[in-house]
Design a binder for these strands. Structure first.
Length: 451
DNA sequence: GTTCTAGAAC
DNA sequence: GTTCTAGAAC
C-alpha cells in the first residue's frame, strides 16, 4: 500500500489538514464551586482521568483547555498535572484563568466544544456559568435539551447539545456544542448531596463521560448517554450486520445462556458484565454488540488497535469449545474481520491478526483482534510481547481447524506458559537480538515509521 | 489481568 | 542508572 504514491499523498494531506485544525474542548473544574467538592481531591481525580484519556488518544489534532476564574482551583490542577504528566505533551492539556465563554475573544483559543455543569433536570440557571450560557443562547437551548433528553439526567453522565449557528456564542466564540454534565454535589443546602466517597466515584465518572463525549463528537460520532436508546440503521450497523448472514441467532438462543459458576479471583471475571449487559456500557468501551456476541476495546491495549470479540453465551475458555460451537467460532471470526476492515479503512497502514491466547488470563472466551504495530504504552513486559508474537497466540483460523478435525481443543499449559519467558524477538525482521523491552519499543517505532 | 515493590542483573 | 524478575495485593 505504501507503493501507491497517490494514496500516500492523500494520507499525508489528511494529516496536514488535521494538524491545522485543532479541535478543542474547554471545560471548568467540575463540582468545586457550588457543589463544595474538596479542591485537592478534585484535582487528583480530574488530572488522572485526563492523563488516562491523553494516553489512550495520542493524536495531534485536539487539545483540552481547563478554564477557571478561581486561581486556587487552577493552582491545584496545575500542581497535580506537573506531578503526574510523565511524557504526555503539555500542550494537549493547558489551563487558563478566565471565562469559558470568552476563550476566543480573550485568549484567541477557539473551543468547538465546551462543558457546563447542570443538575438532573437540566434546567437553565442552576449555576453562574450555566445561567450565562442560557442567557446567551436563549430559550431554544432548553427546548432542544428537553427534546434530546426527555428523561432525567444521571449523575456522572454527559449530555451534549448543539447550539444554534446564529447565536453569539457560535459567531463570536466558535462554540458549536455544549456538553452538559450532571456533576456530583456535596453541598447540603443544594439538591441531592452525597458523601465524599460517593462523590469521588461520581466525579471520576463525570470526567470520563465528559471526555468520552468530546472524543465521540470530535470523530464525528453521536455520543450516547447511558439512559438513551441505541440508534439503529447507522452505516456502522449496516456494515456489521452484513456479515451475519449464516448464523444469526434469535433471542431464544441467548435466553438459554448458561450462567457462569461464581468463583475465581475477582479480576478474572471482568469480561462477564460486558456479555450480560453490554447496553449499560458507554460506546467508548463497547464497540458493538448483538444477541450473539459483543466487541469491546481492550482496557490495556497492546497495540494501536486492540479489541476483544466475545460470545455472549458463557464459555469459560477455548478448552470448553465443542464441535457444535463451530458456528460460533466462525461468527466471531466473521465479525472480527469486519472490525479489521473498518479499522483499515481509517488507517491503511494497519494490519491485523485475530486469535486466542493458549492460556488466557481472564474467564470467558475472548478473541483478540490486534494490529501488528504493537505500539502502546500498555505493552510493558516480555510476557505481553510473547503472548502475541509466539505460538502462545493461536490464530482463529487454527482454532477453527482443530475444532473441525478433532472436535476439541487441548493445550499443554506448562509448555505454553514457558513460551512467555522466551527471549525477545522482532515479529517482522531478523534483528540479531533485542534484549530489553525499551529497545524493542524503539525498534517497533522504526518499523511503523518505515511502513 | 494490573500495579507496586524489592532486590538482582546488566 | 536502568531494566528485569518475582511475588503480593487487588
Amino acid at each position: 500500500m505504501t507503493s501507491n504514491p497517490s494514496k500516500r499523498r492523500k494520507i499525508v494531506k489528511k494529516f496536514v489538514d488535521e494538524k491545522k485544525q485543532i479541535i478543542r474542548l474547554g471545560f471548568p473544574s467540575i463540582s468545586t464551586k457550588f457543589a463544595e467538592f474538596p479542591i485537592d481531591i478534585a484535582a487528583d481525580i480530574g488530572c488522572e482521568v485526563i492523563k488516562e484519556f491523553l494516553r489512550l488518544h495520542r493524536g495531534l489534532d485536539f487539545e483540552l483547555v481547563m478554564i477557571e476564574q478561581d486561581s486556587k482551583v487552577l493552582n491545584a490542577f496545575e500542581l497535580k498535572w506537573k506531578e503526574i504528566k510523565d511524557d504526555l505533551d503539555a500542550f494537549k492539556f493547558q489551563t487558563k484563568n478566565g471565562n469559558l465563554l470568552q476563550l476566543k475573544s480573550d485568549f484567541g483559543i477557539e473551543c468547538r466544544f465546551i462543558v457546563a455543569e447542570t443538575t438532573w433536570r437540566m434546567k437553565p440557571g442552576t449555576n453562574q456559568l450555566n445561567k450565562q450560557i442560557f442567557d446567551a443562547v436563549g430559550s431554544r437551548l432548553h427546548e432542544e435539551l428537553k427534546r434530546l433528553y426527555p428523561n432525567p439526567g444521571v449523575v456522572g453522565e454527559a449530555y451534549p447539545v448543539q447550539i444554534p449557528k446564529d447565536s453569539d456564542l457560535h459567531i463570536d466564540e466558535g462554540i458549536e456544542q455544549i456538553i452538559f454534565v450532571v456533576s456530583p454535589n456535596m453541598n447540603p443546602s443544594r439538591p441531592d448531596p452525597v458523601s465524599l466517597g460517593k462523590a469521588k466515584e461520581l466525579l471520576k465518572k463525570t470526567y470520563h463521560s465528559m471526555l468520552n463525549a468530546f472524543w465521540e463528537l470530535k470523530i464525528g460520532q453521536e455520543y450516547r448517554p447511558i439512559t438513551t436508546k441505541k440508534e439503529k440503521g447507522s452505516a456502522f450497523d449496516i456494515l456489521m450486520k452484513s456479515a451475519s448472514k449464516s448464523s444469526f441467532k434469535t433471542s431464544a438462543e441467548s435466553s438459554k445462556r448458561i450462567l457462569p459458576k461464581v468463583g475465581g479471583k475477582g479480576w478474572t471475571n471482568v469480561l462477564l458484565p460486558y456479555c450480560q449487559s453490554p447496553e449499560t456500557f458507554p460506546k467508548s468501551e463497547v464497540y458493538y454488540y448483538d444477541d450473539e456476541l459483543v466487541i469491546i476495546y481492550d482496557k490495556y491495549p497492546k497495540a494501536k488497535k486492540h479489541l476483544l470479540v466475545i460470545p455472549r453465551k458463557y464459555i469459560d475458555n477455548i478448552e470448553e469449545l465443542k464441535k457444535q460451537d463451530l458456528q460460533l467460532v466462525r461468527a466471531l471470526k466473521e465479525k472480527g474481520q469486519c472490525v479489521i476492515e473498518k479499522m483499515k479503512q481509517e488507517n491503511p497502514k494497519l494490519f491485523f491478526r485475530m486469535g486466542f491466547h493458549a492460556v488466557p488470563g481472564l474467564r470467558q472466551l475472548h478473541m483478540h483482534v490486534i494490529s501488528q504495530d504493537f505500539i502502546s504504552p500498555s505493552l510493558k513486559h516480555k510476557k505481553h510481547w510473547n503472548s502475541f508474537t509466539t505460538e502462545f497466540f493461536k490464530d482463529a483460523e487454527e482454532i477453527e481447524k482443530i475444532l473441525e478435525e478433532r472436535g476439541e481443543i487441548k493445550f499443554n499449559k506448562e509448555y505454553y506458559e514457558n513460551l512467555l519467558k522466551s527471549p525477545l524477538k522482532c515479529h517482522l525482521c531478523d534483528t540479531k537480538s533485542i534484549k530489553f523491552i525499551p529497545d524493542l519499543k524503539k525498534h517497533l517505532e522504526e518499523h511503523w515509521n518505515e511502513s
